[in-house]
Write a protein that binds this DNA or RNA. Sequence first.
DNA 1: GCCAACGTTGGC
DNA 2: GCCAACGTTGGC
Length: 149
Amino acid sequence: MKTEPDVFSIDDLASRPDQKEIWDGVRNYQARNFMRDDMRVGDPVLIYHSSCKTVGIAGLAKVSQIDVVDPTQFDPESHYYDPKSSPESPRWITVEIEYDRTFDQVLPLSTIKTLDGLDDFVLLKRGNRLSVMPVSDGAFSVLVKAASI
DNA sequence: GCCAACGTTGGC
DNA sequence: GCCAACGTTGGC
């Protein structure tokens, strides 16, 4: 899951009293579908920092709740307000995640690009625009291993 | 700030 | 349903 650390970083997640956060503001259908259809409580999550000084994977979280209705879609004051959505039929479903750990150093994108075993990693494809994407067991293992060296 | 790679919108 | 125009994302 991607986030801009200037807006919300893994440190912000770790600083929450319960170390949990609803992943609101996702307004891309593909990204939503991954959260709505594929995530299960307990699934591990890689937290990726984008559009910042050190772009890359910053640490780990886990899914703590699924089928969460994104509250910002009903808030006219919110940047993520969606007038076409309704409480009866909410359009934007998300998850809540819980902090797990922060890597000693961010695993930089430049390093990720050099790793073997990431042929199926979506981050390195399609212009890298998806804010939520699946990670295979194999890719996950390669990435965590590389981050823990 | 630039630019490629998308996704979305709306006219037809 | 097609497709041009437009908007957004995100690395650099």
